[in-house]
Amino acid sequence: MDVITIGETMVLFTPETSGKMRYAKQFSMKFGGAESNVAIGLSRLGHDAGWISKVGNDEFGKAMTAFISGEGVDVSQVIVSADAATGVYFKEPRRADDVRVYYYRKGSAASTLTKEDLDEEYIAKAKYLHITGITPALSDSCAETIYEAIAIAKRHNVKIVFDPNLRKKLWSEEKARNTLLEIASKADIILPGVSEGKFMFGESDPVKLGSLFLEHGASTVVLKLGAEGAIYFTKDEQRTVPGFPVKQVVDPVGAGDGFAAGFISGLLDGLELNKAVKRANAVGAFVTMVNGDVEGLPERDEIESLINNSDEDVSR
């Protein structure tokens, strides 16, 4: 297995019309979750990815598991809960630059994950373990599960990729900050945004943030700058990699997950860091052009075409 992810995926309902959701009469149903988004993104780029989670014994859980499996992701470690339901969330596209998200996930099946649900042998076979700051926010048992997964990865020399993916609605700021900093200290690679870095360290200068994350324990830091691209930091190198211009952003949700998938894909292919970050920027740009969390994730030929013609606009 190339990469294993752990986290909750939910049923996503989006109004067929823009504006305030109170006026919506019809909704489309899709699926979305940061970790499964990354796994699907990696699968589309030709890598082996596995997703660890828990779903309800309901139609949503069955449909979700079938969908993710159909995208080529291994779902053998997904547990079906007899007692809790699959989580749900709504995406409200009020305007092109104002997309709001509402979660109905308290007490969901995934929030009942425990460290006993992990198979050490399964994680040990991976090259990378991808985790986010969302999963430990779901419950104390989920936090314990993430810490146990990290411990397993370290025992077996599995590289840990951490995307803070801050969700303030899920927990108190103090608990979020302490947990994110603790996980960051254990990660090999960190993929934060500037706002997340500011939340964690109280610093907004990108260069200072890169240094702070390195001092905190990571060996590689890739700081996301949105449309401007990203800056990566190691103890020996710092470099800005420009983003890809997009004429019209349709849906920005999921772009960070696409970025993570693109970057990890580059590492798996043995690319130099600057080229891995360039691939990450390209995948993130693709995601913003399509409504939905995973619908815009590109396949390898699309990314290679974009990168080879990087002087052209993504929306060509």
Rank of each mutant, 00 (worst) to 15 (best):
G217Q: 07
E272V: 05
I183Q: 04
M64C: 13
E116N: 12
V294D: 04
M29W: 12
V75M: 06
K127P: 02
I303G: 03
G292M: 08
K25N: 08
E299C: 05
F233M: 02
I307F: 12
I307R: 03
E8A: 02
N291G: 06
L180C: 05
H216F: 03
G33V: 07
N309C: 00
K106G: 00
G32T: 09
A24I: 03
L181F: 03
N308S: 15
T65E: 07
F286K: 11
S185N: 13
E272Q: 15
F259D: 10
F286C: 15
L118K: 10
V241D: 05
N308M: 15
I231A: 00
K25S: 10
N178S: 08
G284P: 12
A82Q: 12
S69A: 09
V38M: 05
G41I: 05
Y232S: 01
F233R: 04
Q238G: 10
G72A: 07
K159E: 01
K208S: 10
L170H: 08
F244S: 01
V283T: 05
G61H: 14
A153K: 05
V55N: 07
D311M: 04
N291V: 10
S139K: 03
K125G: 06
E71W: 02
P252S: 14
W171N: 02
V250Y: 07
S76I: 01
L181I: 02
F60K: 10
P164H: 09
S195L: 14
G72F: 14
D58K: 02
D119I: 11
L214Y: 03
M1Y: 02
L118F: 13
V246I: 11
A261E: 13
L12Q: 09
V207Q: 06
E312G: 01
Y104F: 14
V287W: 07
A285R: 09
K175S: 12
E302T: 11
D205E: 15
A260Y: 06
A85G: 11
T220M: 00
K175W: 03
G210T: 04
L297G: 06
R177C: 04
E196G: 15
K30W: 13
G7A: 02
P15C: 05
S305G: 08
P242M: 05
D48E: 13
R300F: 11
P245C: 03
N274C: 10
A143W: 08
R44Y: 08
L138R: 13
